[in-house]
Design a protein around this nucleic acid. Structure first.
Lengths: 143, 143
DNA sequence: GCGCAACTTGCAAGTCTTTTGCAAATGCAA
DNA sequence: TTGCATTTGCAAAAGACTTGCAAGTTGCGC
């Protein structure tokens, strides 16, 4: 998809291998990735970690990628897909993350409520579920 | 509230000043605090940062406190109040965090869906809204 | 294609949060 | 009060990110 490179170009930002790869890697990943995980998916020569961080910050400020907070040590990023709206299920035992496309997450009423009661303009939200995955439920550790 | 100290005692964990203070500080805070922020609220002598981290890990594993991921550099913690269920609104411009007691966040249908479709047993969820607070909306920076 | 200016990258060093080892201090049950 | 497991403080380390700077690329006009 050249659309995102166009966005970069139009904003006067260079289209580099690093940036295109990050967008591709995130677009192909079913789950959000850490900066480290992203770098690992590069074929050699891998970019410096600092470059990955800088590019994620840039792409994030342009709205092309988005960071996801999953109570982990490191942050994760995912590609911003127009229209698509995913949430995640995280296993507290093994850390497994699974995407969960909420068929209808109607939070618009709550968002309206927030606007009228607090004067906040909500631009996005994050919704994650935590619990135990089937595998860990079977093992019966810490039920 | 002595109930929480009882829980510690019953589990064979010592009831120390550090632990009681953390529970009290979090219970009194309207917003989730970082480990650093918690330590700052101690009256001298303040515990070592390592102790705060260790105790937060302990209290968290016992379910007495819970960590909240707000896309910040540091994690935040809040006291677990039975029944109470809060969400937060975070300003992307100034970082201001506001508690938002959702009158009805009916995610139970989604949680049921997750259980039946993925086999995941959901124990809790995190829901945060991001946007701009009234103050920053007024300033008109990055509308 | 060429060259310049602006933007990017790699590298190294630095910051900040969180974790860990260990000996001294403390909590608690008997 | 004693004994012993649990906790704490301290110091060092690990890990995630950030920043300064010189060298390397990209984009644009020619």
């Amino acid at each position: 998809m050249a659309g995102q490179s166009d966005i970069l170009r139009r904003l006067g930002r260079a289209v580099t291998r690093g940036r295109e790869e990050i967008l591709r890697i995130l677009a192909e990943s079913p789950l959000p990735l850490t900066p480290r995980g992203i770098r690992d998916k590069f074929t050699d020569p891998k970019p410096d970690a600092a470059t990955v961080y800088r590019n994620l910050a840039l792409l994030s400020s342009l709205g092309l990628v988005r960071s996801v907070a999953l109570h982990e040590r490191s942050r994760r990023y995912e590609a911003t897909e127009v229209g698509a709206h995913r949430h995640r299920v995280v296993c507290r035992s093994c850390g497994r993350i699974e995407a969960f496309p909420a068929r209808e997450c109607d939070l618009s009423r709550i968002e309206n409520d927030i606007r009228s009661r607090l004067g906040f303009r909500v631009t996005d939200h994050s919704l994650e579920f935590f619990g135990k995955c089937p595998g860990c439920l079977g093992k019966g550790n810490r039920p």
